[in-house]
Nucleic acid binder design. Structure first.
Length: 268
DNA sequence: AACTCTGCCAACCGCACTCTT
DNA sequence: AAAGAGTGCGGTTGGCAGAGT
């Protein structure tokens, strides 16, 4: 399962990540963000290549990465998406919150592939708006087609599945970070996919079901609206992005992330 | 108990794409 | 427009763990 640590001729370490390395990486990203993967290991005091650091972060250390068994719902979704999209693991992974492309790919090869071939599983026809993608195709075009797929054929029910709280398996490095570490996280450099970082910032106790919890469970104890309560009047008007009720910059950022997530859930 | 086989999964590798200069 | 750097993605590998013999 793990590779024996080794170094190449340049002294770059390969193989299994140790808990110490995990902590260094997690601490560094928490404090400085991932502004440049190639430079990061040098500044973080790691004898790893940037690529390795990125992979480790994305697949393992990143907050909100779900680990453990795939649910039947997830299996079904993967099978359906794979039948439509092929081996586009990163695209498939975007439809399974908390799952990484690597994990889905491994799961496919280890168990779903056989099931796909040997069972009578068959997805419904997907309509004419779907096409076989190639890597070169325009992303926005792709997104439109995936939206069509999800809206028309696949009923994502993953919102109901529990979101594990930052289950860093081997070293609990993230969860061991102090509150001050969290509060000093520099968000610069995090992409949309790293919105999980924001969840962690909001507070460990609230993360578990952040997506299904009331919106803004109190940044400062002032706002406590449920998603339904808050969104309903806007949804009636067809507005998915109502104005932010809080006007400080940080809250606005969280708000943006939450709205993006909320609208995603609502549209599925 | 010892050995072999197999499944699983973390991590590596190389290519393609995007962005910057 | 071209070149180089940085990043993303998918295929593949290495090796541990557990099951089977």
């Amino acid at each position: 399962m793990v590779r024996t640590p080794s170094c190449d001729k340049n002294g770059i370490k390969k193989g299994t990540w140790t808990p110490e390395e995990d902590k260094k990486l997690a601490d560094y990203v928490a404090n400085h963000g991932c502004w440049n993967w190639r430079q990061l290991p040098k500044h973080a005091g790691l004898s790893r290549c940037g690529k390795s650091c990125r992979l480790r972060w994305m697949n393992y250390l990143r907050p909100n990465v779900r680990r453990g068994n795939f649910s039947q719902e997830e299996d079904k979704l993967i099978l359906e998406l794979h039948q439509s999209l092929g081996n586009r693991w990163s695209t498939i992974a975007r439809q399974l919150p908390g799952r990484t492309d690597n994990e889905i790919k491994n799961h496919w090869h280890s168990s779903l592939k056989n099931r796909s071939c040997s069972t009578n599983f068959k997805s419904k026809p997907l309509g004419n708006n779907l096409k076989t993608f190639s890597r070169k195709e325009d992303r926005s075009d792709e997104d439109v087609n995936i939206d069509s797929l999800l809206n028309n054929e696949v009923h994502i029910i993953l919102e109901s599945t529990p979101i594990l709280t930052c289950p860093v398996a081997s070293s609990s490095t993230i969860s061991s970070l102090s509150h001050s570490d969290h509060s000093s996280i520099n968000l610069k450099g995090f992409g949309v996919e790293d919105d999980a970082c924001s969840r962690q910032l909001i507070g460990e106790n609230n993360i578990g079901d952040f997506w299904t919890q009331p919106f803004v469970q109190d940044f400062e104890g002032n706002v406590n609206l449920s998603t339904d309560d808050f969104m309903e009047p806007f949804l009636e008007l067809g507005i998915l992005y109502p104005p932010c009720p809080i006007d400080d910059e940080e809250s606005f950022w969280f708000y943006g992330m939450h709205m993006a997530q909320t609208s995603e859930v609502l549209q599925l």
